[in-house]
Amino acid sequence: NKFNKELQWATWEIFNLPNLNEEQVKAFIDSLRDDPSQSANLLAEAKKLNDAQA
């Protein structure tokens, strides 16, 4: 299933962003679980936040 692979990839990527704190990671993962179809958008937002906090 396409969404499942995207969800797994986005989850792994978010867990490995070095500049997000635990609460931010949890919030993004919760959002992914709530709406897996938004995984690409949520990953992009997480990466933006990660870069901003570098």
Rank of each mutant, 00 (worst) to 15 (best):
residue 17 L to V: 01
residue 51 D to R: 07
residue 22 E to N: 11
residue 20 L to Q: 00
residue 19 N to F: 11
residue 1 N to E: 09
residue 22 E to S: 14
residue 15 F to Q: 15
residue 21 N to D: 13
residue 36 P to K: 02
residue 50 N to G: 01
residue 52 A to Q: 10
residue 12 W to P: 02
residue 21 N to Q: 09
residue 35 D to Q: 09
residue 1 N to H: 05
residue 50 N to E: 01
residue 16 N to P: 01
residue 47 K to N: 08
residue 46 A to Q: 01
residue 30 D to S: 07
residue 21 N to H: 06
residue 20 L to T: 00
residue 44 A to P: 01
residue 12 W to M: 14
residue 12 W to G: 12
residue 5 K to P: 05
residue 38 Q to Y: 06
residue 23 E to L: 11
residue 10 A to Y: 14
residue 8 Q to D: 07
residue 37 S to Y: 05
residue 46 A to M: 02
residue 46 A to D: 00
residue 22 E to Y: 09
residue 13 E to L: 10
residue 24 Q to W: 01
residue 4 N to M: 05
residue 22 E to W: 05
residue 17 L to M: 15
residue 27 A to V: 13
residue 20 L to F: 01
residue 27 A to E: 11
residue 19 N to K: 03
residue 31 S to N: 07
residue 3 F to H: 09
residue 38 Q to E: 13
residue 53 Q to D: 03
residue 44 A to Q: 10
residue 50 N to T: 00
residue 36 P to G: 03
residue 5 K to T: 15
residue 19 N to E: 04
residue 39 S to E: 03
residue 38 Q to W: 05
residue 15 F to D: 07
residue 4 N to Q: 03
residue 14 I to D: 02
residue 15 F to P: 03
residue 48 K to T: 10
residue 53 Q to Y: 07
residue 40 A to I: 13
residue 41 N to I: 11
residue 25 V to G: 02
residue 47 K to I: 09
residue 18 P to S: 11
residue 52 A to M: 14
residue 35 D to P: 01
residue 1 N to Q: 05
residue 8 Q to L: 13
residue 54 A to Y: 09
residue 37 S to W: 06
residue 32 L to N: 01
residue 46 A to F: 03
residue 10 A to N: 04
residue 42 L to R: 06
residue 51 D to V: 07
residue 29 I to H: 04
residue 18 P to W: 05
residue 54 A to R: 02
residue 46 A to T: 00
residue 10 A to M: 06
residue 38 Q to T: 08
residue 21 N to S: 11
residue 21 N to R: 12
residue 16 N to T: 12
residue 15 F to M: 15
residue 24 Q to L: 03
residue 40 A to G: 11
residue 22 E to D: 12
residue 31 S to P: 01
residue 23 E to Q: 09
residue 40 A to V: 14
residue 18 P to N: 07
residue 15 F to Y: 15
residue 43 L to G: 01
residue 18 P to Q: 10
residue 45 E to F: 07
residue 29 I to Y: 03
residue 42 L to P: 00
residue 10 A to G: 04
residue 27 A to D: 12
residue 13 E to T: 07
residue 19 N to P: 00
residue 26 K to Y: 07
residue 36 P to H: 04
residue 36 P to W: 06
residue 46 A to P: 00
residue 53 Q to V: 06
residue 16 N to E: 07
residue 41 N to S: 13
residue 37 S to T: 15
residue 7 L to H: 07
residue 19 N to L: 05
residue 28 F to G: 00
residue 43 L to P: 00
residue 11 T to H: 06
residue 13 E to P: 02
residue 37 S to N: 08
residue 29 I to V: 11
residue 14 I to A: 02
residue 54 A to L: 09
residue 2 K to P: 14
residue 15 F to H: 14
residue 1 N to M: 02
residue 39 S to T: 14
residue 36 P to N: 02
residue 12 W to F: 10
residue 31 S to T: 10
residue 35 D to I: 04
residue 36 P to S: 04
residue 48 K to P: 00
residue 40 A to P: 08
residue 2 K to L: 12
residue 44 A to V: 09
residue 17 L to S: 02
residue 53 Q to K: 03
residue 35 D to R: 09
residue 27 A to Y: 15
residue 10 A to I: 14
residue 26 K to A: 10
residue 26 K to M: 11
residue 16 N to D: 05
residue 14 I to G: 02
residue 34 D to I: 12
residue 12 W to E: 15
residue 33 R to Q: 11
residue 7 L to G: 04
residue 37 S to R: 05
residue 18 P to L: 08
residue 54 A to Q: 12
residue 4 N to A: 04
residue 7 L to T: 06
residue 45 E to M: 10
residue 20 L to N: 00
residue 54 A to I: 08
residue 41 N to L: 11
residue 2 K to A: 15
residue 4 N to G: 06
residue 20 L to I: 04
residue 41 N to K: 14
